[in-house]
């Protein structure tokens, strides 16, 4: 305990880095998921082919491999060295974005056809239909799986320690190396990861509540309901 209290600032800064990479990766993944997911629902075969190509490729390769490729293989091709943190965010964002795109595509396709027909009867443009009717309804369905993906992304950020970024994992490993206190050093990191995960879970649950309320659906209230275990979906939480 004392070990950790003494090193609290170190662990906090590691946690800050972990959180930063998580947020940057999530923003990139979200943007990619939205754009590619919508492309996957279009009739245009070129758009669909691009969407499929992206999702299959980046779901197929682990973020770790992608990150190493960007950090070490690319400098061999072009005279640039990609910053380690940037490579990590890019690899994680591309990888999680591919899972997210599938979630977005499926959620859009799950919006009842009758809703689209109502937008036609009101002469809404494609853009307006997406923006005002389809995406807001699909949103509520995406959120639970997005929540799982954000947790997976957060955990996956640990790989940045392998290319020298001082995240939580790196801090733990350095502390272990310099003090030999394996249990204390790693327990500190694990607890910090767990707390970050809980923070993200609560945040996502709040978003879910808001989305459901907007659809006029009943929502559970109270703080404890925010911490209940994630709904176990038979789809493996969107993870493949």
């Amino acid at each position: 305990m004392e070990f950790l209290i003494d090193r609290l600032p170190l662990y906090l800064s590691g946690a800050g880095t972990t959180l930063l990479i998580t947020l940057l990766g999530a923003v990139l993944a979200f943007a990619l998921a939205m754009v590619v997911g919508v492309m996957g629902t279009l009739r245009n075969p070129v758009a669909r082919a691009i969407a499929t190509g992206y999702t299959e490729t980046f779901r197929g390769v682990a973020a770790l491999v992608l990150m190493y490729w960007m950090a070490f293989a690319i400098p061999q091709l072009v005279p640039y060295k990609i910053d380690a943190l940037f490579a990590a965010v890019l690899a994680l964002g591309l990888n999680v974005g591919a899972y997210g795109a599938e979630v977005v595509r499926a959620a859009i396709n799950a919006v009842p056809k009758a809703q689209v027909e109502a937008t036609i009867a009101l002469s809404m443009s494609w853009w307006r239909r997406m923006r005002a009717v389809v995406l807001p309804q699909a949103w509520a369905q995406m959120l639970p799986t997005f929540g799982n993906l954000v947790i997976e992304l957060m955990k996956a950020t640990a790989i940045v320690s392998l290319i020298g970024v001082s995240d939580l994992t790196r801090v733990a490993q350095e502390q272990r190396a310099s003090t030999g206190e394996t249990v204390a050093a790693f327990t500190g990191a694990l607890i910090a990861y767990f707390l970050i995960a809980q923070l993200l879970i609560v945040g996502m649950r709040l978003l879910e509540r808001r989305a459901n309320r907007r659809l006029g659906r009943p929502v559970a209230t109270g703080f404890l309901a925010l911490l209940r275990p994630p709904p176990a979906t038979a789809t493996g939480g969107g993870r493949r």
């Binding site: 009758a114 809703q115 027909e117 109502a118 009717v133 659809l215 006029g216």
Partner: peptide, 11 residues
């Protein structure tokens, strides 16, 4: 058009 199932936008 008015639909059999109303098709109001729930959002």
């Amino acid at each position: 058009m008015v639909f059999q199932q109303f098709n109001l936008f729930p959002n």
